[in-house]
Design a protein around this nucleic acid. Structure first.
Lengths: 379, 379
DNA sequence: TCCGATAAGTTTGATGCCTGAACTTATCCC
DNA sequence: GGGATAAGTTCAGGCATCAAACTTATCGGA
């Protein structure tokens, strides 16, 4: 009961920072008295801090602004990439406090070896003089959310790795560890820091194409956590064979590799230069990819009824060329488009969305249920 | 608090009817004392009834079985079809108490006219000597769940009809009225009475192809309630033009009409005869439809990570021929299939799943939050 | 400058629900 | 018949919420 209401209060302050106790009471439907006592407890645990006195015209006492405390529990985000391990320390309000990057070829290393490095990175971050509320780990593969097990990560060449348990053991952690798919966590970052609102599909195209689906402000992970595999939607049933065994997967037709090659260049940077120079092959390559993306996304939107598509990763940079034809394709293929047209926007988060989301997932867990953390602080 | 726990108790009895108070306490994590007092209240409101004394070996007092009361609030389900209005009265335990059917061509009638007939049917049902807990209305079109507004129903030729308000006004109802898409409500019926478990896509193919998505035992309706439009997934981007303005929609390639025509017959009955007689054209037509269905469903499953496909409506009858090639297509195209193969099963509910689900949605609302009903009974 | 009006935040007593423990009831088995 | 076991009830205690009264802070007009 108090547990639930504490989360309500934190939620109100998260969406409307700087609210007074009275404003929080109004927003949550609780009484001022209840909010007062909950806020006292949350301040005691270091989750909330008081700020300036409110500025407002007219009569009446001014409220004291409340906000999530920058000294509250920090989230530690880890991204295990193909050629790097990136670690970000993010404070309770969402600001990035510190960043580490360890380059290295993880593709050709045994999982145990890489996880040992991750554990070292986590232990190093834990020596910072701030409380750690949880660790989030982003992995480029299928993750079983409930257990934190990585089923398969094609680009790492990993299979059946119990990332959570391994990490808890090696880093001797006493805080929650959450493991998630890269694309899903990037979508979480978009939800917290981005422009997608509370309902969207976030597409992140690096080597593969992943999607994170956010509905009513919550990540939709599917039944066992394998949801959002947009890259393997069959968009051209008679199309080229894919590594997954199927045919005509989106990844083959609109993936970064395909676009770059069709444009007659070798890197994304070159592609962008070519596009800026209005080179025909590049423009056509992007337009074709947009069409295929449109087919896959219209499937997703007809099923899930989402108002917004956020282009992340490499696609964010291609948005000026990719966005309009994609939007056109969607307006043609989405059944409900005439009532609520689908918005296509570019993410502003860049390539680091996944680490940011990983750190954010740890913070989000505390926001959603602060009691365990509060209890651990207050004893 | 009590509100939430009352729902917990009802939920436990709904999944395990005949449990004793002690068993409910164990299942919910509440204490025996709490369960006792909650059960007293729910019996007083007529939601729960005591049954026989438990039969069990060994020492100790026997518990008294509890179950949802058949005299509890009934759900009234209405289906507004193209050529009929069907009304079912279903008791709190899920048993059908009475059925009414009013044939009539609703396709060529003004919504007001049809809704007047629906209101008459509802008032007639309300004269039965049982308490009505709510009304559910199934409509073949896009429904905005929050407001109960029908945005468009192509087969009825309706647009922008405020079904809920109209019906409340005309039938002078003082109980909740829920309006939902036919396919979504059919999926709810499958959840309550069917073989799909707690996570599945339910496909109902009549004139169009609709899908209801159930995840973690709850209907997934999307952001505004327009989800599950499987029929308009683009499965063959270069395929035939569809009435919706897109190209290669599933409905065109695997809809009932298409299968029947491709088989060289004119009705579903003839199709089934032809299949039973091993006629080549019929077998081929169904096999082709299965392939296209597989493409659309693999999109759905890659996105949503669902373990089961339930074939409803006409497809249920075709399952012996449709199921195996569909399952094969899915195992090829679904990325997670190697870890958790997708199960394809035929629904056993027949054509009436939507009405049943509509009635069930009213009952479900009370199970999920019995307090308003309890308060209305106990005053 | 003082005082009434307004609004934020706190204190206090009452209420309602859950809990744990003791108690009653019912049944088996020796 | 009595001990053991288990269901269900009673009762005192605790905790969170709430409404209402109260305190604090600020404005604006007399």
């Amino acid at each position: 009961m108090r547990r639930h209401n504490s989360a309500l209060v934190l939620g109100a302050l998260s969406t409307a920072p700087g609210s007074s106790r009275a404003a929080v009471a109004a927003a949550t439907g609780l009484t001022k008295a209840t909010v007062s006592s909950l806020v006292d407890r949350l301040i005691g645990a270091g989750l909330i801090a008081e700020g300036e006195v409110e500025f407002r015209l007219g009569p009446g006492r001014r409220g004291t602004a409340l906000h999530l405390s920058p000294a509250g529990p920090h989230g530690l985000g880890v991204e295990i990439g193909v050629d790097h391990i990136t670690t970000w320390l993010v404070d309770f309000t969402g600001h990035v406090r510190r960043k580490w990057v360890r380059p290295g070829d993880n593709r050709n290393s045994a999982p145990a070896r890489v996880l040992a490095k991750v554990a070292t990175a986590v232990r190093a971050a834990a020596t910072e003089d701030v409380p750690i509320g949880g660790v989030g780990v982003a992995v480029p593969g299928l993750v079983e959310a409930a257990t934190g097990t990585l089923r398969v990560a094609p680009n790492l060449g990993w299979r059946e790795v119990d990332v959570r348990d391994e990490l808890v053991r090696r880093a001797a952690l006493d805080v929650p560890v959450l493991v998630g798919n890269e694309a899903n966590l990037a979508a979480l970052a978009e939800l917290r820091h981005g422009v997608g609102g509370r309902d969207f599909v976030h597409i992140s195209g690096e080597i593969g194409i992943g999607a994170g689906i956010v509905v009513h402000g919550a990540l939709f992970e599917g039944v066992s956590g394998f949801g959002g595999e947009l890259g393997h939607l069959p968009v051209d049933p008679r199309g080229p064979v894919c590594g997954c065994g199927s045919r005509g997967c989106l990844e083959r037709l609109a993936g970064q590799d395909r676009i770059v090659r069709a444009a007659g260049v070798t890197t994304v940077a070159e592609l962008l230069t070519a596009l800026a120079g209005n080179e025909k092959a590049a423009l056509a390559a992007v337009r074709t990819a947009a069409r295929w993306l449109g087919v896959a996304l219209s499937a997703a939107i007809n099923l899930l009824d989402l108002p917004t598509v956020v282009l992340g990763g490499t696609y964010a940079h291609l948005e000026p060329w990719l966005g309009p034809p994609l939007a056109a394709e969607l307006s043609r293929r989405v059944l409900g488009a005439q009532w609520s047209p689908v918005r296509v926007v570019a993410s502003e988060l860049g390539a680091d969305a996944a680490v940011l989301g990983a750190a954010g997932s740890a913070i989000r867990a505390i926001l959603a249920d602060p009691d365990p953390y509060v209890a651990s602080v207050l004893g």
